[in-house]
C-alpha cells in the first residue's frame, strides 16, 4: 500500500511539472505583449524595453520558466513598479492590475471557494448517494420512482436558472434567507453559514441528482453480483448485504466522479460564484482574463491543476483502500 502511494505521488509531481510547463509556454505563445498593459497611455519604446527587462520577458523562455518555478519553490527577487522587491515562496509574481502579490490575492479568495465547494460537496454527496442507494434497494417501488423523478428534475436544471429563481424567491420575496455572500468563518460563523446556505443547497440540488442516479445504477449492478447472492445464501443481515457487501462495490464509480467534481469546484465554481455574488477563485479567474492580468491567470490555472492532480491522487488512494485488487497492479 505504501509503495502504491509513493508511486502515485511521484507520478503526480511529474504530471504537475508537465502541466506547469505547458501552461507557461502556452501563455507566451499567445499574441499580445504583456508589457504594454503596464506601460500606460504614453508608451515609448525605451519604456517598453525597460518593462520587458523588468518583467524578465526579454530573456529566453526556458530561463523564464526556470525562474518562475524557482519563485514558486524558494521565492525570487522581482522588479515591481521600478523597485526591486523580494517575493517569498510560493511566488507567483505580482498582479499587473493591482500590483499585489498574486499568492496573497489568491489566498484572500480561496477560503470563499473552499467553503462553497466543501459545504455543497458534503450535501450533495450525502444526499445524492443515500438517495441513490435507497432507490436501488427499493427499485421499482414508489420511493424509487419519486427519487428518480426528483433527480431527473435536478439534473435538468442549470445553476444560472434555478440559482437566480431561488434567490429571487427565497431571498428577495419571502425573505427566508439573507442575501447570499461570503463572510469569513473566523469573522462571523453565523454570517458565514447563512450567506452560504442558499448557494450550498442550490449547488447540491443540481449535483446531487447526478450522484443519486450514478449510485443507484452502480448499486443495482452491485446487487446483482454473485457475491451478494452468496451473502444472502449465508443468511447475512440485510444491513451487511447492502452496506458491507453491495455498498462497497457500488461506491467506486461514485468516488471517481466525486474526486473530479470536487476538484472542479475548488478550481473555481465560476457560475455559482457569479450568481450568488461570492468573491471566489472562479470570479478571480474571470476578472483576470478580462483584465489580461497574466500572472494572475497563470496562477489560477496552475493552482487549479494542482487541485485536480491532488484530487486524482486522493481518488486513486481511495480506490486502493476500497478495492484490494487495485493495490497489486
Amino acid at each position: 500500500m505504501l509503495r502504491f502511494v509513493v508511486r502515485r505521488l511521484i507520478t503526480s509531481v511529474l504530471i504537475l511539472a508537465v502541466v506547469s510547463a505547458v501552461t507557461f509556454f502556452l501563455f507566451f505563445v499567445v499574441p499580445g505583449d504583456p508589457a504594454r498593459l503596464s506601460c500606460g497611455k504614453i508608451c515609448t519604446n525605451e519604456k517598453l524595453a525597460e518593462i520587458h527587462h523588468n518583467l524578465g520577458i526579454d530573456r529566453p523562455l526556458v530561463v523564464q520558466y526556470g525562474d518562475y518555478m524557482k519563485g514558486i519553490v524558494v521565492g525570487r527577487d522581482i522588479i515591481e513598479t521600478g523597485d526591486k522587491v523580494h517575493c517569498d515562496a510560493p511566488c507567483f509574481g505580482y498582479s499587473f492590475v493591482n500590483h499585489q502579490p498574486v499568492w496573497e490575492t489568491f489566498l484572500d479568495r480561496f477560503p470563499a471557494t473552499l467553503s462553497l465547494a466543501l459545504g455543497a460537496a458534503l450535501l450533495f454527496l450525502l444526499g445524492g448517494v443515500s438517495l441513490g442507494l435507497v432507490s436501488a434497494i427499493y427499485r421499482g417501488r414508489a420511493f424509487d420512482k419519486v427519487a428518480i423523478g426528483l433527480s431527473l428534475t435536478g439534473a435538468s436544471l442549470q445553476i444560472y436558472f434555478i440559482g437566480i429563481v431561488a434567490r429571487a424567491f427565497f431571498v428577495d420575496k419571502l425573505q427566508w434567507l439573507p442575501q447570499p455572500g461570503y463572510t469569513p468563518l473566523t469573522e462571523d460563523p453565523g454570517q458565514w453559514f447563512a450567506g452560504l446556505l442558499l448557494p450550498w443547497i442550490i449547488l447540491a440540488f443540481v449535483s446531487a441528482a447526478l450522484y443519486a442516479r450514478l449510485s443507484r445504477a452502480s448499486m443495482i449492478e452491485a446487487l446483482q453480483e454473485d457475491f451478494v447472492r452468496t451473502g444472502r445464501a449465508r443468511g447475512l443481515s440485510a444491513r451487511s448485504i447492502y452496506l458491507k457487501h453491495a455498498g462497497r462495490a457500488a461506491i467506486s464509480p461514485v468516488v471517481t466522479v466525486f474526486g473530479l467534481d470536487l476538484a472542479g469546484l475548488l478550481g473555481g465554481a465560476i457560475i455559482t460564484e457569479s450568481v450568488f455574488s461570492i468573491q471566489g477563485v472562479g470570479r478571480l479567474a474571470i476578472t483576470s482574463v478580462f483584465a489580461s492580468d497574466l500572472p494572475m491567470i497563470m496562477a489560477t490555472v496552475l493552482l487549479a491543476a494542482v487541485v485536480i492532480v491532488t484530487a486524482n491522487l486522493i481518488v486513486d488512494i481511495a480506490y486502493a483502500l476500497i478495492d484490494p485488487r487495485v493495490r497489486i497492479s
Binding site: F227, T230, A233, R234, G235, L236, H245, A249, I322, D323
Partner: peptide, 18 residues
C-alpha cells in the same frame, strides 16, 4: 447458512473481492 448452505459455480465471482 446455518441449516442449508450453498456452494456456487464460480468461486471468483461468488466471493467478495473486497
Amino acid at each position: 447458512g446455518e441449516k442449508i448452505a450453498m456452494i456456487f459455480q464460480d468461486p471468483l465471482t461468488a466471493l467478495s473481492p473486497f
